[in-house]
Design a protein around this nucleic acid. Structure first.
Length: 223
DNA sequence: CTAGTGATTCCCT
DNA sequence: GGGAATCACTAGC
């Protein structure tokens, strides 16, 4: 069970401030997903900040597009993108409105509904692997582009919400380079996590992919 | 444990 | 045309 004071919604003002302040403050908070099968509650253990159009690592770096339009809207809403041809990732838009800042939710500990999360994450060997990584987190919670733009500060009963939970204790906060961000965008230590948590995803330096060897498959998928 | 690579599709250049 | 805020699996140590 979750204590009553932890179930307070996060006010929108929480996200209407600089993203580098909001990101570490998000650790330890609760993300609640309501599904037909039941409820999943995730305690956030790892996030990354993306600081608007000036940030080379951000999807907003090259300006507004149909895909990233939600980032330019009001704070406290979900920005969900599709990547690598297979995966979804979930962000929270941060203010001030128009700056196109956001926080990528990278990992969390399932504190309620692990059996439901496991339906979508059958390859997880342990419960702490259910949401260990941004695409795993979105998969475990059944989050896709249909939830793009969802208000995370909405009323009880909404499909996806953020509750106050218990902020991570200051001495356990850590930060370091962002994962998977190439070039100059990778230098900023804007990945934040809670020390000692098993659900925190391992750091992987960005590795540029060479086109693999000889034959490149072109159009048709073999017979 | 680490390093390497295929999967798969959308979106912007 | 080709990269992408990743994952799962394999080989090798």
């Amino acid at each position: 069970m979750i204590a009553a004071h932890d179930r307070t919604p996060l006010p929108r003002s929480f996200f209407d401030r600089p993203v580098l302040e909001a990101a570490p403050a998000l650790l330890g908070r609760l993300l609640v997903r309501e599904l037909p099968e039941g409820r999943i509650v995730l305690r956030l253990t790892e996030v990354e900040a993306y600081a608007g159009e000036a940030d080379p690592g951000s999807h907003a770096y090259r300006g507004r597009t149909a895909r990233n339009a939600v980032m330019y809207g009001p704070p406290g809403h979900a920005y969900v993108y599709f990547t690598y041809g297979m995966w979804h990732c979930l962000n929270v838009v941060c203010g001030p409105e128009g700056l196109a800042s956001g926080i990528l939710l990278r990992a969390g500990e399932v504190v309620e509904g692990a059996d439901i999360a496991r339906l979508r994450r059958p390859t997880a060997r342990r419960d702490h692997e259910l949401a260990k990584g941004p695409a795993r987190l979105a998969t475990a919670l059944g989050v896709d582009r249909a939830l793009d733009g969802t208000d995370l500060c909405g009323p009880e009963g909404e499909p996806l919400r953020l509750l106050a939970g218990t902020p991570a204790p200051e001495p356990l906060l850590r930060n370091g380079p962002r994962t998977g961000v190439s070039g100059e965008g990778g230098v900023h230590p804007w990945r934040y996590w809670i020390d000692g948590e098993q659900s925190v995803s391992p750091y992987r330096a960005h590795t540029p992919r060479r086109r693999t060897g000889a034959v490149r498959r072109t159009t048709t998928k073999g017979s």
